[in-house]
Amino acid sequence: MAVMRYSEALRLAMTEEMERDDSVFICGEEVGQYQGTYRVTEGMLSKFGPRRVVDTPISEIGIAGMATGAAMAGLRPIAEFMTWSFALEAMDALVNHAAKITYMSGGRISCPVVFRGPAGVGTQLSAQHSQSLESWFAHTPGFKVVLPSTPEDAKGLLKTAIRDPNPVIFMENAGIYGQRGEVPEDTDFMIPFGQAAVRTEGSDITLISYSNMVLKCLKAAEALEKDGIHCEVIDLRTLVPLDMDTVVKSIQKTHRAVVAHEEWKNVGFGAELASRIYEQAFDYMDAPIERVGGADVPMPYAKNLERAAIPTDLDIIAAVKRALA
């Protein structure tokens, strides 16, 4: 084990996989000479050279197309979007091509590509730069959708993503790039997709979330513990595939649930989750599921408005109290 930052764990995963497999390469804006907008790819250009760490123009369609086509032709590209907001430029390459080619080819072409970059909200970046879009991708058949919340997961899940034969939407969170944690140094350490992690065990209520929101759930759980409320916190880690077994098992124990995410509440992933819980565990429920999500508005700039738009641990606590009332 070594202690490292979330961003360093991502770099370690990519470095190990590039050392292991020559077909893995990185392309994206400012990934090479600039050392990465958020320093995730720092040092990789000098280590692997311009054949494998490719600085691109500001051309998201080009980046996504290059990665998708190269994957179809036998390489294992990692395409970095400077932020997921800019991937919107590339939606056609992503949704109409990468996600569908395996199906459209009757399984004869696979598309082992990772699209990664920072997602999420905050730091007053306002409407066009501060938004969570995971449900757009989870909605599209053909993608796997991954959102790590810890340095260990960042490494283990990214390695799995790179080796996966399918297009993987890998959403990091800029707010936690600097967060430190223990990371296994084993070069074969991988975390399988579709295995949620129980971050804290509890008997009264289940809090289900992913990415940065897990940290807020843990904070809420800690505060509620003082009031004698024992929360079980589940980190989904991957939205597709989705580990409902872990969720259902927990609800069989707690009989109550809060689903929480930073993305917009309307048609957010929490709605899908709640619906599946009702389908699979209705008989165990003692109270309606509470949903916590972002305000359904484009992200405002002003600090006070932004604070009101992004869900916090306090919103989770309030939801827990409603569920237990």
């Binding site: 500001i58 907001s85 800019f86 430029e89 007053q124 306002s126 409407a127 066009q128 730069h129 405002p300 700039y301 002003a302 408005l305």
Partner: peptide, 27 residues
Amino acid sequence: CALGKGGSMHLIDPDNGFLGGDGIVGG
């Protein structure tokens, strides 16, 4: 000029013909 909703990247003043700053490159 954007009631605090835009910030530096999204100044706007339609009354003066200014349809705004855009945060998306090429936007």
